[in-house]
C-alpha cells in the first residue's frame, strides 16, 4: 500500500499538513482532506482498487508550552484514499 506521512497543525486560521515536499492547507479538516485527496489522485500513479494512506501526525508545538505538561498529545489521523 502506498502512503505518505505529514505533520499536521493549526496555524490559528487554517489546518496545515506538510512534510519536506508538500504543504496542504484547509479552513476545515474537510477542506484539507479534499486538497490532499485531489493532489494524491492527480499525481500518484494508482491502479484501480488501490488504497493510498495519508498519515497525519500532530505537531505538538501547536499546543502552548504551558499545556504540554498536562497533555502531551493532540491527535494522529489516518486518511485512506481509495481509487
Amino acid at each position: 500500500m502506498k502512503a505518505i506521512r505529514l505533520n499536521i497543525w493549526h496555524d490559528g486560521r487554517q489546518w496545515v499538513a506538510s512534510n519536506d515536499d508538500f504543504t496542504f492547507r484547509g479552513n476545515s479538516l474537510d477542506e484539507l482532506d479534499q486538497n490532499v485527496r485531489r493532489y494524491v489522485l492527480s499525481r500518484e500513479s494508482l491502479s484501480r482498487g488501490d488504497t493510498f494512506r495519508v498519515y497525519m501526525y500532530f505537531d505538538n508545538r501547536t499546543i502552548p508550552e504551558w499545556i504540554r505538561p498536562y497533555a502531551q498529545h493532540y491527535f494522529d489521523r489516518i486518511l485512506e484514499i481509495k481509487t
Partner: peptide, 20 residues
C-alpha cells in the same frame, strides 16, 4: 481537566484553540 479537554478537543476534531 486539561488532559481531558485536549483529548476531547482532539477526539471531536476541534481546532486546538477550543481545548486551549
Amino acid at each position: 481537566g486539561v488532559s481531558a479537554a485536549v483529548a476531547t478537543g482532539a477526539a471531536v476534531r476541534a481546532r486546538p484553540v477550543v481545548a486551549i
